[in-house]
């Protein structure tokens, strides 16, 4: 399957992080959370209003807003 941004992944799907397309503080924070190239990420659930979305990253459930997840490129598992 083609690479896509984490923001566009459907609920319940999972994939591998390819790269992060932003620099500076946001990049740092995302990587500190464990979103480094090669890590597995799973879309757990959307909040009632659609944003933020909860992801399973390295064993913890972490909610991120779409501004950030738009910058994470993922290769989905089929």
């Amino acid at each position: 399957m083609k690479e896509m941004s984490l923001k566009n992944m459907p609920e319940g799907s999972a994939g591998l992080v390819k790269r992060i397309t932003t620099q500076g503080m946001v990049r740092r924070r995302l990587m500190d959370l464990g979103l480094v190239p090669g890590s597995r990420v799973e879309v757990v659930r959307r909040s009632p209003l659609g944003d933020p979305v909860a992801y399973k990253i390295r064993g913890a459930i972490i909610a991120l807003r779409e501004e950030e997840t738009d910058r994470v490129i993922v290769k989905p598992f089929i």
């Binding site: 503080m25 913890a60 459930i61 972490i62 909610a63 991120l64 807003r65 501004e67 950030e68």
Partner: peptide, 11 residues
């Protein structure tokens, strides 16, 4: 500008 948002949902 809004800063980044991360929130852990603990078990």
């Amino acid at each position: 500008v809004p800063s980044s948002f991360t929130l852990e949902l603990p078990p």
